[in-house]
Amino acid sequence: MSMPDAAKADRIARLRRQIAALGVRADHAESGKTGARVVDFGMPQKGVSLPELACGALHEVQAAEYRDMSASIGFAAVLAVCCARTFPDAPILWCESAYAPFDVGRLYGSGLAAFGLDPARLILVSPASAVDLLWTMEEALRLGAFAAVFGEIDGRAPALTLTATRRLQLAAEAGGRPAFLLTGHVAHGASAAATRWGVASAPSHPALETSSLVGRACWRVTLEKSRSAFTGVAADMSARDWCVEWDARRQRLCDVPDDPARIPSPDVMLAV
């Protein structure tokens, strides 16, 4: 039996992903921590291939370039919705940077509600400095009482050191709840985060190809870095990059073909 090379690579990637996912579960089952939980992406059985995100960990979300800042916020909002679903009764803490209102704006209640994130679940904090922001995040994470803790911080802030991210990672582990650092468009140095995601805007796919209307929110997300369990995935270039869209009505993330001409569904190819 012979398979096309591309299909072979794809299959290997999928298997690796499955193994990686199993590995994570087994690890955490042994330790018996609540950290074993993963963020519920609300994805259907088939068609979505983002790796699972561990709850008791620090994740970074970074914009591909300055103009993609709002795209990274959009993807972070998806993560917030998913975390809110994973921990149904807990509020979400979101730390804004002090200059955000004049740069990328502040979170807008009606927009969040439409997006699927109930603004009533949000507690917003706007610390005056990066030091205060990191402190706030750490304190909140240690409590383990929030569904997730988000922090918008300039990736170039001197306070954002390896030690600072390590502290956040440990606090997230202790509390068993996920932390997300939105570091803007600048890559910062060494980080103890479990994963780092790059987010870029992607053109939407309206229901009708011919329509000129604006469709669902769509992003190209890249897993730029992954500690521990996902290295198998990360090593595989083809499985590092996803194009996903957010269905605000059904509140779920779906895979979409990045470039309609490029990738047919893997299942179809395997059947050949």
Binding site: V104, Y108, G111, F115
Partner: peptide, 8 residues
Amino acid sequence: GSVARPLR
């Protein structure tokens, strides 16, 4: 499934 108000 799209939204009519901005996030920010």
